[in-house]
């Protein structure tokens, strides 16, 4: 397990060393702060538009950062030739796969936490009244979302180049968020049942429009889905990596 956490820790360092997270944060912050300063016919505490815009920005940037980080890991290690040096240490290939995935998730979650905290601060400052409990649930649900996203991006990185992996991951993400529930009718059962249903973890409607949180059995189902689904791309990635010469 030492090796798994060591590899994961490296990715968390990477996301903050490589400035991508700061660029995203800055852009998000500028847009949010400006949007928060907007006035609509002198009406006070108009905030739902800000909640929706803020959440959309936070989700968007977190998804891009996480997917990009996960998708570039293995291709970048191959290209930089850092892989043989690492694998010549006492680390199993499965530990490497697990560490890359865990690191992608933790790094994405760290960036998301920073963005989300800032967003909540801006929304509260604007005078937004929203349920802290639902805000907490929205946060946790999106963490599950990142869990699946990290697995997909990480798993694809054993098969694809970094740009192909990133593109495919982001494409699937936005496709499922937009058409997920209707995919069976539009594209048939195969894609509907095999692609990851990211829309499960999107609680923006509940937070923005005050619908409240989810019951416990739904949480159990979401967590189970996230953990089980993540195993699929990771297993495929591990299988591929085990057969690869370093």
């Amino acid at each position: 397990m030492n090796a798994v956490f060591a590899v994961a820790r490296l990715l968390v360092l990477e996301i903050f060393r490589k400035k991508d997270a700061y660029v995203a944060f800055l852009l998000m912050a500028v847009i949010l702060v400006y949007a928060a300063g907007m006035d609509f016919y002198d009406e006070r505490n108009v905030v739902r538009y800000l909640l929706e815009l803020g959440l959309s920005l936070v989700f968007f940037f977190s998804v891009i950062l996480t997917a990009a980080l996960g998708a570039r890991q293995v291709p970048a290690e191959r290209e930089a030739r850092t892989l043989p040096v690492l694998l010549a240490k006492p680390i199993r290939r499965s530990e490497f796969v697990a560490g890359k995935f865990l690191g992608t998730f933790l790094a994405g979650a760290a960036a998301f936490t920073l963005f989300y905290g800032f967003f909540l601060g801006v929304a509260s400052f604007k005078g937004g009244v929203f349920s802290a409990a639902t805000a907490g649930e929205t946060y946790l649900a999106f963490l599950l979302n990142l869990w699946v996203l990290a697995a997909v991006a990480s798993g694809l990185s054993y098969f694809l180049t970094s740009s192909a992996g990133l593109t495919l991951t982001v494409l699937v993400y936005f496709l499922m968020n937009t058409y997920g529930p209707a995919l069976k009718a539009k594209a048939g059962p195969f894609l509907y049942f095999t692609l990851p249903h990211f829309e499960f973890f999107d609680l923006r409607q509940r937070l923005v429009h005050g619908w409240g949180g989810l019951p416990g059995d739904v949480w159990a189902a979401l967590a189970a889905y996230a953990f089980l689904y993540a195993l699929v791309p990771l297993s495929l990635g591990a299988w591929r990596f085990a057969r690869e010469n370093a």
Binding site: A6, L13, E14, R17, K18, R81, P84, V85, K89, I91
Partner: peptide, 30 residues
């Protein structure tokens, strides 16, 4: 490989790390 050290012909190391951080990372793996 627990007691093995390997120096490849042309190696590259994580460029965003310092030498101390790189060795710390490998040390954790060990």
């Amino acid at each position: 490989r627990r007691d093995v050290g390997y120096l490849p012909e042309e190696a590259h190391y994580y460029r965003f790390l310092t030498p101390l951080e790189l060795l710390d990372f490998y040390g954790r793996v060990f």
